[in-house]
Nucleic acid binder design. Structure first.
Lengths: 328, 328
DNA sequence: TTGTAGGCGTTATCAG
DNA sequence: CTGATAACGCCTACAA
């Protein structure tokens, strides 16, 4: 069903139908009414592809996220989608995974789809490969990265100060008498590298001279469980652990419980993200709120402004804050 | 950058460029090479909207979900997106919320975008309003509902047998000596109505004559906490609770703990969904696995088949299964 | 092997 | 107030 079909049946030209569809003035009330009746009758729905073609604007944006199942990304994707749906935009979403080939590919796909803006969620998009793909295929449209940044004219970043945040976690643990700390990391994203940096800086500020204890773990409850046991076997002196994400803290906490440690007196620990995991675990986990939600909201707003022809700050940083619970 | 721009610079016609872009045969190797060089040089990326217009196919599908932040929907959306990305499709996603006006609206939006198929995630789409919107604006494309169904020629459903599933939960509780049961419900979706039905049928089968005890709770930890306290105040005889979703079970479990009940001896409880909440809570929650993941996977596969011109079963049901943990 | 012409469904610009 | 006509960017006969 096209405007031509409607036009034919109404005995008018397609342009007149188009005017009615778009509520343009200058159509005789009677013909307008006649056309509207037909529009209803056939449930006419204008082809947005064709419309986008002449309008040179399709009101679509892209959302790139490594894996929407990660709690911290789910909220972000939700926020962005909602914010844009309100404005009549459609969101194309891709779970890119962590590989750079896929990221490059999806950037090209979004480019072919002629999206008008992109939100990338997660520091994992802050890579050379993404930068190159963007500069080649997406240099014309605004891009906002949640918790990441690229030095490109059309890229904007909203970041959490996780580095400073983690060093305040160190301070917190020290203030409670825990001075032999370890960091358990899940993967080496730019964000996590910052966390480790914050960990080291925190220790240094507290006057610790030795090399920081950092362990790697799989991003699973079991992974954290095992690594925590190993960590304390190899470093029995440890009395405080910072986990790079709440999920690990939850799994690790269970290991501590099973090993008979008393939390938080004997050993304290924290997560990062202030996610549902922190709230649901027993004991409830003290966590660094890195404001992912605010970040996504801000990213969405930035992109909205940019699309509206306005300006946005190239790079902003939001302060993270500790949410104390039962593990410190 | 269009094929015309490339054509001009290459000194050929647009059709020749088009042939190269689409790897069509019948282009002289030398001109092909020349064109390919320019394509690379300018990072040409074909306009999929224009392409979709003549091809009458844009390789886009729609995903409708009430709220992607609900754990049981997140996985579904992920699965569907991944499955279609593999095949070169783009997914437009909308968080519709629970209102029917929004659902109708987004169905119309997807129709205007000319998506080629739709996956609706959740029984919340099994309503008269959705049925009407679909029959008016989407009668031509295949639609698959995860855990729901509509009696329309182009709608397919993959369902979990939650009714039978819940009655096996009743059996389980009875078998462990818990015979005074209550059901705590969060909202009256078709799916939850089935759960309540299963609850009642289970009781009846166990020879219980009295009216089933059903309480309503907000879908929050606190909501479940409060309602659980109220429930046991008003019905101190209760020794077994089935919560309509794991989230409630988690919040309720904490209330039981705080009230000094011994779980599972004194009182047992279960959740439904077998989600991360069941796994993360302490004690770990026995839950009915309603196979949401398999359901989404199956829905995606169905839609793929349908889009490929194949057939799919109109309505299938997947058996749910109890995952026993520490609360029964 | 290559180019021309027509059309996909719209909207915008002119005339009338 | 209404109707041609030409785009938008691409693909596909058909003709050369």
């Amino acid at each position: 069903m096209t405007i031509y079909d409607i036009a034919k049946e109404a005995g008018v030209s397609a342009s007149t139908v188009s005017r009615v569809v778009n509520n343009k003035p200058g159509v005789h009330p009677s013909t307008k009414e006649k056309i509207e009746k037909l529009l209803k009758k056939y449930h006419y729905s204008p082809n947005e592809m064709a419309r986008g073609l002449i309008k040179q604007s399709n009101h679509m944006i892209g959302i790139l996220v490594a894996d929407i199942r990660n709690v911290h990304y789910t909220d972000g994707a939700y926020t962005v989608e909602k914010e844009f749906a309100k404005l009549g935009y459609c969101c194309i979403i891709f779970n890119t995974g962590s590989g750079s080939a896929e990221k490059t590919e999806y950037i090209q796909v979004l480019s072919k789809r002629r999206v008008e803006g992109v939100v990338m969620i997660g520091s994992t998009f802050q890579t050379k490969e993404v930068e190159e793909a963007v500069s080649q295929f997406m240099s014309e449209i605004p891009i906002v990265i949640v918790n990441g940044y690229l030095e490109l004219p059309n890229v904007y970043g909203v970041l959490a100060d996780e580095c400073a945040g983690v060093s305040t976690l160190v301070d917190l643990l020290f203030s409670k008498g825990h001075t032999r700390l370890a960091f358990v990391n899940n993967c080496y994203t730019p964000s996590n590298l910052l966390k480790i940096k914050g960990f080291e800086e925190g220790l240094e500020r507290q006057g610790v001279k030795e090399k920081a204890v950092v362990y790697d773990a799989e991003t699973t409850l079991e992974g954290a469980y095992e690594v925590t046991k190993k960590l304390l076997r190899e470093h029995p002196e440890i009395d405080g652990i910072i986990y790079s994400v709440d999920l690990l803290a939850s799994g690790g906490g269970r290991a501590l419980l099973d090993m008979g440690y008393h939390v938080p007196d004997q050993i304290a620990y924290t997560g990062i993200d202030n996610s549902v995991y922190a709230e649901f675990s027993t004991p409830k986990i003290t966590s660094l709120d890195n404001k992912l939600l605010e970040l996504s909201m801000m990213a969405a707003r930035f992109l909205v402004d940019l699309l509206g022809g306005g300006k946005a700050t190239k790079k902003v940083m939001v302060f993270s804050a500790i949410v104390e619970r039962e593990t410190t």
